[in-house]
C-alpha cells in the first residue's frame, strides 16, 4: 500500500472514524451503564438535539461570526507584523541574537493574564480581544520566521545572485518561498494562540462570542447546550485547520514529511 494511494487514504479515514466511534461509545456508556452524573456528562441525544435547535439558530451564528472575526483579524495582524519583524531580525546575526530570546519569552509567557489591562485600554468590545490575541500570536510567528529565514539554504541565495536576481527578487522569490515550510509551522502555532486567546478572553469578560455563550450555558447548568457549543467550537477549529493546511499546502512537489 503506497502512501498517498486511494486505498491508503481510505484506511486512514477508516481509522479516524473508528476513533471517533470509540469516543462516542464511551460517552454512551457513561450515560447508561457507566452511571456518570448528567451534570458532568449530559445525555448524548440531548446534546445532539441542541445541534438541531440552538446551534443552527441565528444568535449562534452571530456569536460564531464575532469569534471568527476576532480570530481572523488578530491572526492576520500577527502574521504580517511577525513575518516582517522576523525577516528584519533574521537579516543580521546581531538582531537575531537580540530578538530571538525575546520572541521565545513572549511565546512562553501567559499573555492572557494581561487581559484586564487590555480591557482598560481598549474597552470590553472586540478590540481588546483582537489586540490581546494579536500580541499572543505574534511571538511564535516572530520566533518561527527568524528560524525560517535563517534556515534558507545558501545554495538558493547563491543561485539567485549568480543568475542576476536583484536583492528584492532574492528576498521575495527565493528567501520567502524557500522558508515557507518552516514559516508555516510558526503560523500554525500563531493561529492556535489566536484561537485560544480569543475564546478564553470571551469566557473571561465579554458580552458575545462563542466563549461567552459557552460560559453562560455552563453557568446556567445547561450542560447539554454547553457540550453542543464545545463540539461546535471543536468542529470550527478543525475547519480553521483545514483552511490553514490549504493555505500552506506543500505544493509543487516539495516533499513535506
Amino acid at each position: 500500500m503506497r502512501r498517498g494511494s486511494v486505498s491508503y487514504r481510505i484506511v486512514v479515514w477508516a481509522i479516524r472514524l473508528f476513533l471517533l466511534a470509540v469516543i462516542l461509545g464511551l460517552w454512551l456508556f457513561g450515560n447508561g451503564p457507566g452511571g456518570v452524573s448528567q451534570l458532568l456528562l449530559p445525555q448524548f441525544p440531548k446534546v445532539w438535539a441542541n445541534f438541531g435547535g440552538f446551534v443552527v439558530s441565528g444568535p449562534f451564528w452571530m456569536n460564531l461570526w464575532t469569534t471568527l472575526y476576532a480570530i481572523l483579524i488578530s491572526f492576520a495582524i500577527a502574521a504580517v507584523v511577525g513575518t516582517l519583524l522576523g525577516f528584519w531580525a533574521a537579516r543580521r546575526p546581531l538582531r537575531a541574537r537580540v530578538v530571538e530570546p525575546i520572541a521565545l519569552w513572549g511565546y512562553m509567557a501567559p499573555l492572557v493574564l494581561f487581559y484586564p489591562l487590555f480591557i482598560l485600554w481598549f474597552g470590553v468590545g472586540p478590540q481588546s480581544r483582537i489586540a490581546l490575541a494579536a500580541i499572543s500570536s505574534v511571538f511564535p510567528i516572530i520566533y518561527g520566521s527568524i528560524r525560517a529565514f535563517r534556515s534558507v539554504d545558501d545554495i538558493y541565495l547563491r543561485l539567485g545572485s549568480a543568475y542576476g536576481a536583484s536583492q528584492r527578487q532574492i528576498d521575495w522569490m527565493i528567501k520567502l518561498r524557500a522558508s515557507l515550510p518552516v514559516l508555516s509551522s510558526g503560523f500554525r502555532v500563531g493561529a492556535a494562540y489566536s484561537v485560544t486567546t480569543v475564546i478564553a478572553s470571551e469566557i473571561l469578560a465579554s458580552t458575545n462570542g462563542l466563549g461567552n455563550i459557552l460560559a453562560s450555558a455552563s453557568q446556567l447548568f445547561n450542560g447539554a447546550q454547553a457540550y453542543a457549543i464545545l463540539i461546535a467550537i471543536l468542529i470550527f477549529v478543525a475547519l480553521l485547520q483545514l483552511g490553514l493546511n490549504r493555505l500552506f499546502a506543500a505544493r509543487h512537489g516539495v516533499v513535506d514529511d
Binding site: I155, L159, G160, Y163, G164, Q169, A178, H252, G253
Partner: peptide, 25 residues
Amino acid sequence: AFIFQDYSLLPWKSIVDNVAIGLRF
C-alpha cells in the same frame, strides 16, 4: 553563467521555470 555541482534547482519551481529563472529575474 554558472553550473554548480549541487545543481541548485529550486524545488518549488517546475523544470521549465527553473530553466527560465535567469530570464525571470
